[in-house]
Amino acid sequence: MANHPQALHPIIPREKLDFGFDSSIPKYWFGGDAFKSRFFDALSVIFPPGEKFFMTSVRDFRDRISDPKLLQDIKDFNRQEAQHTLVHNQFNDHLKTQGVDVDYLLKWLSQLLFDKYRSRYSREYTLGLTSALEHFTALGAHAMFDKRDVLKEAHPKVRAMYAWHAIEEVEHKGVAYDVMVDYAKVGYALRIWTLLHTTLIFPLVIFKFLNFMLKHDGFSWWQRVKLNAKGIWWLLKPGGFVGPLYSHYFLYYKPGYHPWDETEQPGYDEWLQAFNLHRDPVEASELMRTTMAL
């Protein structure tokens, strides 16, 4: 197939991980901030249906693939995504203990992705959405590890879940893209159109779920408006959570782009070295942060 840049890191499924989600994690585990906590809680709820959608969209084209390396990558991609679903469901069960109607949100998103998108759009289009969403999730590693400590005030156990998830996104970020370009034969126009679609719908779903939770928490409409205004500034301000990601995001629009045009990821080697000590994801996250702060 096409002569793509090569992945720097192997895809390594890490199974039977224990993050220790329990009552020691407060409702507002991100520095006591309701918006920041519920923003990441919304992400956690999104992931199980999203991961299933990713795996299904890639599986649509598996029968066309003969390259043994890509077939193995797809297998390992699926194993990683399955573990992400498992762990986020464990955290989502923690949200249920707070009375959040997680099942309603999961059902709503599953209907959007499977009943609407997969019935309305072609298999090539849904794979384009998958590749674009994988681009977004891979951006999370840059948000958390690129010389900043945006999760400094987060609870260590939840911070560890997102660090581990981001690390594995770095490893498999090229899989759906390779299937899309080499086997689904998605061209530049459709690739960009599905990215634009994703750029619109992804934050809309996050904010829908975020505000659903804030309303459940008892915040009035006006209180939610103020929380959202302050939170959006935190996200978009210069040096905020999203701002430094723009340069990485816009690479996707480049003709001939490939996810492995960016092979280096700050924090990856530090996390992997720490994880290999005892296979403890919480320890790995904390040691990585300590090492990068030196």
Rank of each mutant, 00 (worst) to 15 (best):
L287K: 15
L129F: 12
F35G: 01
A82I: 02
Q83H: 14
K230H: 04
E262S: 14
H9P: 10
V186G: 01
P203D: 06
G239R: 04
L235Y: 09
P281V: 09
A34R: 03
Q265E: 14
W221S: 10
F39M: 06
V100F: 13
T194P: 00
Q90G: 08
L109S: 01
G256I: 03
G243C: 05
E283A: 13
H258Y: 08
W234S: 05
L151K: 02
W271N: 09
M1L: 11
T198W: 00
F219R: 04
I12V: 12
Y177K: 01
N228C: 08
A141L: 15
M144D: 00
S122E: 02
A274M: 10
Y104K: 15
H197M: 01
I192E: 01
M213A: 09
Q80G: 10
D149G: 04
Y257T: 00
F136P: 00
T194R: 00
P266G: 06
M213P: 04
G128E: 02
H142Y: 12
P266N: 07
Y177W: 11
Y253H: 06
W29P: 02
A154Q: 03
K215Q: 12
F114C: 08
K185M: 01
Y188V: 02
P266H: 11
S131G: 14
H88G: 14
P255N: 06
K147L: 07
K152Q: 15
K215H: 10
H84T: 13
K69F: 07
K96Y: 07
G31S: 07
E124Y: 03
F241T: 06
S131T: 13
D182E: 12
H88K: 11
L127Y: 06
Q80V: 14
R159N: 11
A2M: 07
A160G: 09
Q111W: 15
R159W: 02
Y121I: 02
Q83W: 15
K254P: 01
G99P: 13
N92D: 09
L112E: 13
Y188H: 09
G218E: 06
Q72H: 10
R59E: 15
F47A: 12
F35P: 01
K116L: 12
F53H: 05
G187E: 02
Q223N: 10
F212G: 00
A229M: 13
Q72W: 08
E124P: 00
A34E: 03
K147Y: 13
L105F: 07
K230S: 08
V181A: 06
G256Q: 06
I25Y: 11
L210K: 00
G239I: 04
R123C: 02
R224G: 11
R38M: 07
M292N: 01
E283S: 07
R224Y: 14
F53N: 03
E134C: 05
E81R: 08
L190E: 04
N276F: 09
